[in-house]
Nucleic acid binder design. Structure first.
Lengths: 213, 213
DNA sequence: TTGAAACATGAACGAGTATTCATGTTTTGC
DNA sequence: GCAAAACATGAATACTCGTTCATGTTTCAA
């Protein structure tokens, strides 16, 4: 949605995340850091933040425990970074699959199905965001605020173009976000066997015409 | 919504919750148990499950640590009970405020606003349900499954009465649930100062007519 | 009144774990 | 080739916290 594709080359990090440990200075360091981050994603995604110990993470990454603290100040920090990265990934995935579309209802449907595909492919990342509400509320809020803002921008533009009716963009944005989230949860938490295109169709139908007979 | 008002007199507990500690046998015992449960609600709601220690809970309840284990087998158990109770409370609150209504769109709006009022009044209970995904997934699923089932029943009935158009009831149910959840979260996690009736109006408008011009 | 059951206490146990640190190894710039 | 910087190690530290238990106190039925 209206979200700009985030630059991946890590410039001095402008969003949240306190004083970060200095970036690795060699290729080896960068590889190790990435390995730890990837391991953290798997382990935290599976066991949850609290049951995922540094020991678990480092052994999954194939490094010693102390190595962790060369790259991350605390356990919380690696988690926060995970949440930020995941946010970037979903938004990127969505904006990619809507980039060429012009009709807002098509955009909405494509965005939703892209989101659902992403969620099905990364069920652990989905759980991670949920847990951020407790571990790093700021990151959690940032995640959804960015999402909501993307929706709002798209809605306002579509109203201006006459593609959709007028209405409270803020509430609509949150409602749309809520629909996507709930359907995604249906897929990965309730492990429904629903197929994504059909879900997209049903949702678009509801979104376009509402419930009225 | 379609959910039956749950009996509050604790019959032998039919839902989840493993082998529970026997119910208290005297008035004193019952009062203590209730005090611990209430303290757990406050403490876990504030600090989250993992940072809420038994010590915190019992001292908030004004009893010794050991007393906790007279009434609850484990820390997890008190949490599970909290989630179940909260589910009962919301559903009851919603079904009460929709009981006299007959038009489905009115019911939907009244249910949503009742939910939002409840959430605003119990922001800590809201957080508790979220955390159940990690602490007691079964309770989490039960919570939302019951909600979804209520929605689905209501939708099917309304279609039969010709009050709303036809459409996939399951997906619609999850979408409606998602909307409610997102708007509730907007209130308590993002602490918007929005007023609830206006949110209800906007949402109903969207739900009734959709986005089409 | 009295004995038994229910309830209450808080100190102690044991297991787990985030973080640090002194010591090695590898890579880099020159 | 070599010093210095960067990276890696894993044992040790310094906790926290869930749970148990031996010992009291209160309540209740008869």
């Amino acid at each position: 949605m209206g979200t700009t594709a985030a630059p991946n080359k890590q410039a001095p990090q402008k969003t949240s995340a306190k004083a970060a440990t200095p970036q690795p200075k060699t290729a080896r360091g960068e590889a190790t850091r990435r390995a730890i981050l990837a391991a953290a994603e798997r382990v935290i995604g599976e066991k949850g933040y609290n049951d995922a110990s540094i020991g678990h993470i480092t052994s999954e990454a194939g490094v010693a425990q102390g190595t962790f603290y060369i790259y991350f100040k605390t356990k919380e920090q690696v988690f926060s970074e995970l949440v930020l990265e995941m946010g970037r990934l979903v938004r990127h995935s969505i904006s990619e699959s809507t980039a060429t579309l012009t009709d807002h209802l098509d955009i909405e449907k494509a965005g939703l199905t892209a989101f659902l595909r992403f969620v099905r492919a990364h069920p652990n990342l989905y759980k991670i965001v949920q847990e951020a509400l407790f571990v790093d509320p700021a990151a959690y809020r940032e995640y959804y605020a960015k999402f909501a803002s993307g929706y709002r921008v798209g809605l306002l533009a579509a109203v201006k173009k006459g593609q959709i009716s007028e209405g409270d963009a803020e509430t609509r944005a949150w409602a749309l976000m809520g629909i996507a989230r709930a359907l995604g949860e249906q897929l990965v938490v309730f492990t429904t066997q629903k197929n994504i295109p059909e879900l997209g169709d049903s949702a678009q139908e509801l979104l376009a015409n509402g419930l009225k007979p």
